[in-house]
């Protein structure tokens, strides 16, 4: 049985890690990272079958690709907290000679990363390739990916969306962080995504929706998504989140996409996230 309370506690620690990492170097992307903390925690601590003794080829494992690489703080925290590398290394985020680059990369050989991301729109294609690779290898495990909603403005995403359904890539579960915010403002104002559910359905994907900041719902929806694999269609989860979730003054504000809290704001943020498993 899934212990939702325990997952919530981990997510609280992940949020503490995010704000502390970004504060320490006064750069990075806290907004989307905080919004996706519950999803990433559920994925790595409940949903996926994965091995922290990292192997690039991931044979017999579920794999995850972060396409919106700027939310690297949440990725790094979840990887460290699930044992891919020591948590003190989180303190090297964005510093010189670090494996924790501003955007995730395989280049510095950080365990848990399988492709570089940051330039948006590329991760879905890579996830499809990994999913095809599993099929060719007779590996029945699943490929997960996460994308920003603003990222869907990239054309390559739609090449990949069309490909995945046409080729029945049904071992793929792609989640969209639907927080409605991007750097220049609300997605509605910058470039409206329109009816995303209808768009994915028109491309013949199976579509689930969830509140990405309700741990119960995240766990249940991810469980459900796994039951939808192997049925001839790729699966999309439209995940409604609040950018900056967990830190009240960041919540729902696109201004917190890519700026760091100051000392006072850090203290305020950590006070709102009292549950800790032990800061790095």
């Amino acid at each position: 049985m899934t212990d939702v309370r325990q997952l919530q506690n981990i997510a609280s620690q992940v949020r503490r890690d995010i704000v502390r990492m970004v504060h320490a170097v006064q750069s990075g992307h806290p907004g989307g990272s905080l919004g996706c903390a519950d999803f990433m925690t559920a994925l790595y601590f409940n949903t996926m079958e994965h091995n922290p003794h990292f192997s690039m080829d991931a044979v017999g494992e579920d794999v995850f690709f972060l396409s919106n690489g700027h939310i690297s703080p949440v990725f790094y925290s979840v990887l460290a907290r699930s044992g891919y590398f020591p948590t003190p290394e989180l303190g090297s985020f964005r510093k010189l000679n670090s494996r924790l680059q501003g955007h995730p990369t395989t280049h510095e050989h950080l365990p848990g990363i399988r492709v570089a991301s940051g330039s948006l729109g590329q991760g879905l294609s890579v996830a499809i390739g990994a999913a095809l690779s599993k099929k060719m290898n007779g590996d029945d495990k699943t490929v997960f990916s996460l994308h920003g909603d603003g990222e869907l403005q990239e054309g390559q995403i739609w090449e990949a969306v069309m490909f995945a359904s046409a080729n029945k890539v049904d071992n793929l579960i792609s989640t969209i962080d639907f927080n409605g915010q991007q750097i220049d403002g609300p997605t509605e104002k910058v470039l409206s995504l329109g009816n995303l559910r209808a768009k994915f359905e028109a491309f013949d994907w199976q579509v689930l929706e969830m509140n990405g900041n309700d741990m119960n719902e995240v766990v249940n929806t991810l469980d459900k998504s796994k039951t939808l694999t192997g049925k001839g269609k790729p699966t999309c989860i439209l995940m409604h989140t609040i950018m900056g979730k967990g830190v009240d003054f960041m919540e729902g504000k696109h201004e917190w996409h890519g700026i760091a809290p100051n000392d006072e704001q850090l203290k305020k943020a950590l006070d709102q996230l009292p549950v800790t498993l032990g800061d790095y």
């Binding site: 794999v63 690709f65 492709v115 590329q122 879905l124 294609s125 890579v126 499809i128 990994a130 490909f163």
Partner: peptide, 8 residues
Amino acid sequence: GIAAGLTI
């Protein structure tokens, strides 16, 4: 992108 993923 698919090619990159296939290497995994």
